[in-house]
Design a protein around this nucleic acid. Structure first.
Length: 526
RNA sequence: GUCCCCAUCGUCCAGAGGCCUAGGAUCCAGCCCUUUCAAGGCUGAGACACGGGUUCGAAUCCCGUUGGGGACGCCA
């Protein structure tokens, strides 16, 4: 049997981390077994803007390197893959279920079913529809219609025995049929519901393994009922534990951003991203800028492989120590047997740890490539950087080293790409370091050294400063901080001598002069 | 409320009866390194929810309790 898995997003306009994890496991399983991964669009419930609402989802998957063999934009032998385009098929399926006596027309009004549901609630029993307005014959139907009622179609679920199946993750599962609802599969307006569509599509698309989130576990009996009704061979089911909220155990939800932000770890990651966005002058809207959504990581410049690697380990493991996987290794080792049964809470800090490792391991040229778009967005770099510009980006990237954790962190080193007269000073650092007693004078005395030192490279500069410090009889800390603030505008940064070398002699001198002029102009100036 | 599921360090995982005085990662703390910030090195703190069984022996099996969660739609 050939392996075919699917992920079925509904076009909501965003790609949720939990969804990605589910999709990833489907993708890995298909790749592991030389099968196909299918993207099916569950858009039975919405009409318009499907394309627009799908865009971020498809883009997100592409960014993550999760490609699909069949589905939107790539087509496939079972097209169309949009449920909204398959209504004829569903209509026929409903007709057949009706003919086989596995479904019935139901003429209850919404108020009537609601009343029954509430009564059941009061009596502390599970709500099972009474079938009072069930029409199994045309005569019944005509009578109800005479009363001005309209019909929905419900599944006529068994009222005895149990639905048993073997779940690849959870083992043997059993549900009492008598506790199953007569689910509606066709609305009064003739449109179809998810369970019908899903069961039919899984068969039509020849899905071999339905790997989905745990919240669908209790939906499984009704889908099995439908599939069995048609005599379809059942797919193998695998219900994944859901991804839980940071520091909590309820399902991760995009809407609870505010709550998650009260969690320090989560907030740290969010703030880090928000800071980068602020530097870029981009407004941060929770609709998309939210660590629960893939969009966040893409915007801020995480490595897609880091996200994928982290998500892989959320509910799955190979052994007691392997954590870093290449894509090929993931595919090679993935198995449903090693999927966990309990919910795993999303930990953005650990996610960041994977990101740091990936970013560190990235070859310089790839790092330059990753980082450049942010400089372009800052307006500090043209779309086609010159060789000199590339060289400078590379020098900064190398000097910054692991301080660049996400690609967007390059904005912290904007001063290397800004004009000598225009880059900003951190006021607090300026006051503390250059405003310190004698700091400006020392800078002034050190300036000639910078003018003459040859060559103008980090090692030589280092030695020259050492000599200066000895001659002055001061500690290195008494000049180095002032120098850093003068040339970079900041109190923190990577190695000072590297910074000087990258800027070059002319820029260093110009920047020191500017800082000294600011001091002379008095407090508050520049 | 009903049904179902889950239960090892704060978090993610390892553990499928003796290898466990419970291992790794992350986070946290301290120290070292150091011109700042990172990183790195070293050290440390930190868990088998509880109660009964079964067994020579239980984190591992069974039952119960407690706790957490999911599903109960003319949503997907």
């Amino acid at each position: 049997m050939s392996v075919r898995t699917r992920f079925a997003p509904s076009p909501t306009g965003y790609l949720h981390i939990g969804g990605v994890r589910t999709a990833l496991f489907n993708w890995l399983f298909a790749r592991r077994h030389g099968g196909r991964f299918i993207l099916r669009i569950d858009d039975t419930d919405r009409e318009r803007n499907v394309e627009a609402a799908l865009r971020p989802i498809l883009d997100g998957f592409r960014w993550l390197g999760i490609d699909w063999d069949e589905g939107p934009e790539v087509g496939g032998p079972y097209a169309p893959y949009y449920q909204s385009q398959r209504t004829e098929r569903y209509r026929a399926a409903v007709r057949e279920l009706l003919d086989r006596g596995l479904a019935y027309r139901d003429y209850a009004t919404t108020d009537e079913t609601t009343a029954e549901r509430e009564a059941a609630q009061r009596e502390k029993r599970r709500f099972i529809y009474s079938r009072r307005w069930m029409a199994e014959t045309d005569a019944d139907a005509a009578r109800f219609e005479g009363e001005g009622r309209t019909a929905v179609v419900r599944l006529k679920m068994p009222r005895e025995s149990a639905c048993r199946f073997e779940d690849a993750v959870r083992g043997p599962v059993a549900f009492d049929w008598a506790l199953e609802q007569d689910h509606v599969i066709q609305r009064a307006d003739g449109s179809h519901l998810y369970h019908l569509a899903s069961a039919v599509d899984d068969h039509d698309f020849a899905i071999s393994h339905v790997i989905r989130a745990e919240e669908h576990l209790s939906n499984t009996p009704r889908q099995i009922f439908i599939a069995d009704g048609f005599g379809y061979e059942l797919p193998r089911y695998a219900h994944l534990p859901y991804v839980a909220a940071p520091g909590g155990s309820e399902k991760l939800s995009k809407r609870k951003l505010g709550k998650y932000l009260t969690q320090v770890d989560f907030k740290k990651v969010f703030d880090h991203g928000a800071e980068i966005m602020a530097s870029l002058g981009r407004e941060v809207v929770p609709e998309t800028f939210n660590p629960v959504l893939v969009e966040f990581y893409r915007e801020v410049g995480y490595r897609p492989d880091a996200l994928v690697n982290y998500l892989l380990l959320l509910g799955w493991s190979l052994d007691d120590r392997t954590e870093d996987f290449t894509r090929d290794e993931m595919v090679e080792h993935f198995s449903l047997q090693r999927v966990n049964r309990s919910a795993a809470s999303f930990d953005p800090q650990k996610m960041m740890a994977f990101e740091e490792r990936r970013m560190n391991a990235l070859p310089v040229d790839r790092k330059v490539e990753a980082v450049s778009p942010y400089l372009v967005r800052l307006g500090l770099l043209g779309a086609e950087p010159t060789a000199a510009e590339r060289a400078r980006i590379e020098a900064v990237a190398v000097a910054a080293g692991d301080r660049i954790k996400v690609a967007g962190d390059i904005v912290r080193y904007a001063e290397f790409f800004q004009d000598d007269a225009g880059f900003p000073y951190d006021e607090k650092a300026f006051r503390k370091r250059i405003g310190a007693p004698d700091a400006a004078d020392r800078l002034r005395r050190f300036r000639p050294v910078l003018e003459t030192v040859e060559p103008f490279d980090a090692a030589t500069l280092d030695a020259a400063l050492q000599r200066f410090v000895e001659a002055e009889g001061i500690r290195i800390g008494q000049i180095i901080h002032a120098l850093r603030v003068a040339v970079t505008g900041k109190g923190v940064g990577f190695g000072l001598f590297e910074a000087l070398e990258i800027l070059g002699r002319a820029a260093c001198l110009a920047r020191i002069d500017r800082a000294l002029a600011a001091v002379d102009a008095g407090p508050g100036a520049d």
